[in-house]
Simulated assay, not measured.
Amino acid sequence: MATEPGPDPRRVDPDYDRHGGFPVFEAAQPGPGFERFLTAMRRLQDLAVSADPDPQTWTDAAGRVEALVAQLAPFEAGEGVGPANRVPDLPGAGSLLMPPWVVDKFEADEVLLRVTFSRFHVGGNYAVHGGVLPLLFDSMFGMVIHATGRPISRTAYLNVDYRKITPIDTELHARGWLREAQGRKAFVNAELRDADGNLLAEANGLMVRLLAGQP
Rank of each mutant, 00 (worst) to 15 (best):
R163S: 08
R163Y: 03
T116P: 04
P55C: 13
F117S: 07
V69F: 08
G94K: 14
A174I: 09
R184L: 03
R209S: 02
E4P: 01
L47N: 09
V69A: 04
G176Q: 04
A108Y: 00
P23T: 01
T170A: 06
F25S: 04
H129M: 02
D52K: 14
I168C: 04
A93D: 14
P134Y: 11
G124H: 12
S153Y: 03
D138S: 05
G31I: 11
E66C: 04
M207S: 14
L47A: 10
P167R: 01
R150H: 10
N125P: 00
L47T: 07
Q56T: 13
V87A: 01
G123M: 04
R209A: 12
D89V: 12
P100M: 05
A93E: 10
L136M: 11
G6N: 05
P32H: 03
Y162I: 02
V12E: 07
Q214E: 15
D161M: 11
L96W: 11
L97M: 07
N198M: 07
L96D: 09
R64H: 15
Q45N: 13
I165F: 02
M207I: 14
D17M: 07
D15V: 12
M207G: 08
D60P: 07
G20W: 00
N204T: 08
A174N: 06
T59M: 05
L68H: 04
A156N: 08
Y16M: 09
V144Q: 00
T155R: 00
T155W: 01
A127P: 01
A212D: 07
W177A: 01
F106L: 06
D89S: 14
F34S: 11
E202S: 14
V81I: 11
R42C: 14
M1S: 11
Q29N: 09
F106I: 03
G131S: 02
P5S: 02
G78K: 05
S139N: 14
D89Y: 01
E4H: 07
A212V: 06
E79N: 09
A48K: 06
G131Q: 08
D109E: 14
A181G: 06
M207E: 13
P23D: 01
R119Q: 10
V69T: 12
R11Q: 12
A174M: 04
P9R: 00
A28V: 05
D196S: 10
H146Y: 11
P74H: 08
G205V: 07
P9T: 05
A40K: 11
Q214A: 02
V69R: 07
T166D: 06
R179N: 10
T59E: 13
G6T: 11
V49S: 09
R163C: 12
L206F: 06
R42L: 14
P88R: 00
F75H: 15
G131P: 05
F120Y: 10
A127Y: 10
L38K: 12
